[in-house]
Amino acid sequence: MNFTLSQHAEKMVREREINLAWLSATLHAPDISQSDQDDPTLVHVWRRIPEFGNRFLRVIYNHTTTPPHIVTVYFDRSIKGKR
């Protein structure tokens, strides 16, 4: 694995049945990327997941750590239709 997961992110992956390959693809080849407004160490990335109804997976991670540390991950309903 080329990233680490916070306890919260691990819980979200299990509960929401998020495929780690989707998470990795989102992290490494996002459709959208944006810096966090409040925390300069965090980056928000989104990627459309065709296998999950074309919904956007959102991954928030700390880009200052090696490997990147995933803070949270979820399917973001607010991005639907914006891309």
Rank of each mutant, 00 (worst) to 15 (best):
R16T: 04
D36A: 06
H8R: 12
R77W: 06
D76L: 09
I18N: 03
R48S: 14
F75M: 13
H8T: 10
D31I: 12
V45C: 03
M1F: 07
W22Q: 07
R16L: 02
H28C: 07
H63T: 02
Q37K: 15
T64D: 11
H63D: 07
P68R: 08
Q7V: 14
Y61Q: 03
P68L: 06
V59K: 04
W46F: 06
T4C: 01
F3Q: 00
K80E: 15
N62V: 10
I18H: 02
A21Y: 13
I70D: 04
V71F: 02
T65Q: 11
V73E: 00
T72I: 09
S6K: 06
S33G: 07
H63R: 14
H28D: 08
V73N: 00
V43L: 08
E15S: 08
F56E: 11
P40W: 05
D39E: 05
V59M: 09
F75C: 05
E10T: 13
P50V: 10
R58P: 05
I32K: 09
N54E: 14
S35L: 13
Q7E: 15
N54Q: 14
Q34I: 03
N54S: 14
H28V: 03
K11A: 08
P50H: 12
L5S: 06
S6R: 06
P50M: 12
V71Y: 02
E15M: 03
W46Y: 09
P67I: 03
V43M: 04
T65S: 09
G81D: 00
D39H: 01
H8Y: 05
T41Q: 11
R47Q: 10
R16V: 03
R16Y: 11
G53P: 09
D36T: 12
H44N: 07
H69Q: 10
L5I: 08
A9P: 08
A9E: 06
P40F: 11
A21T: 15
R55E: 14
H69A: 10
R55P: 06
G81N: 00
H28P: 00
V45P: 04
A25W: 04
G53T: 13
Y74T: 07
R83K: 12
F52G: 05
T64A: 06
I79A: 09
R83E: 13
I70Q: 05
S24N: 13
R48Q: 15
S33Q: 13
V71I: 15
T41P: 01
I32N: 03
D31F: 07
D38E: 10
S33K: 07
Q34P: 00
N19E: 10
H69Y: 12
I79G: 01
V71S: 04
P30W: 14
R77Y: 08
G53M: 14
S24L: 09
T66F: 01
F3E: 00
